[in-house]
C-alpha cells in the first residue's frame, strides 16, 4: 500500500500517519520535516518550495516501490508541501508501517535521504536581506 502527494495546503502529520494502519502491522514511523529558522548560522524568514510536479510524483513512486522491495514494510505514504512555508511548518511527511519497528525506522531514514537526492523539488531560503535557491547535497545526508 502506498500514497504520494504534493499539496500547497498545510500538512496534518497525525492524520497522514493514520492513513496507513494495516492490520498486519504493529508500528508506523513518521518523519515530520519542518522549516528550520537557522541554517549555518543564518536566520531564515520563510521558505518557498517549488517542484517539477509530474516528475516529482513519478520519482516519489519509484522510491516507495524500491523501499517496499528492500525492507520488510507494508505501507508507505509521502506528502510534500509546496509554496511559501513559515518557520516550524511541516514541509514533508514520510510514514512507514511495518510488522516490527526496526524496518520502519530504517526505511524511513532511507526514504528521506533518497528523496533529498532524487525528487525534483527545490527550496528557496528567504532572509531579511536576500534569498537563495538551495542546491542539494548529492549524498542526501544533510
Amino acid at each position: 500500500m502506498k500514497f504520494f502527494e504534493l499539496t500547497s495546503e498545510p500538512l496534518d502529520v497525525g492524520a497522514i500517519a493514520r492513513r496507513i494502519v494495516p492490520e498486519e502491522c504493529g508500528a508506523t514511523v513518521t518523519l515530520d520535516g519542518y522549516v528550520r529558522k537557522f541554517t549555518k548560522g543564518r536566520e531564515t524568514d520563510y521558505l518557498v518550495y517549488e517542484a517539477y510536479e509530474p516528475m516529482a510524483l513519478k520519482e516519489m513512486e519509484k522510491l516507495i516501490d524500491k523501499a517496499l522491495d528492500k525492507y520488510e514494510i507494508a505501507a508507505v505514504g509521502i506528502v510534500h508541501r509546496l509554496g511559501k512555508l513559515d518557520i516550524g511548518e511541516t514541509s514533508v511527511v514520510i510514514s512507514v508501517s511495518s510488522p516490527h519497528r526496526r524496518a520502519a525506522f530504517e526505511s524511513c531514514e532511507w526514504l528521506i535521504k533518497e528523496l533529498k537526492r532524487t525528487v525534483p523539488i527545490w527550496k528557496k531560503e528567504v532572509y531579511a536581506d536576500g534569498e537563495v535557491w538551495v542546491e542539494g547535497d548529492v549524498s542526501g545526508e544533510q
Binding site: G33, Y49, A51, Y52, M55, A56, H80, S91, V92, I112, L115, K116, R117, T118, V119, P120, I121, W122, K123, W133, V134, E135, G136, D137, V138
Partner: peptide, 10 residues
C-alpha cells in the same frame, strides 16, 4: 526536456 540544479526538497 528540463534543466535544473541539484534538488533540495525535504
Amino acid at each position: 526536456l528540463a534543466v535544473f540544479t541539484a534538488v533540495s526538497g525535504g
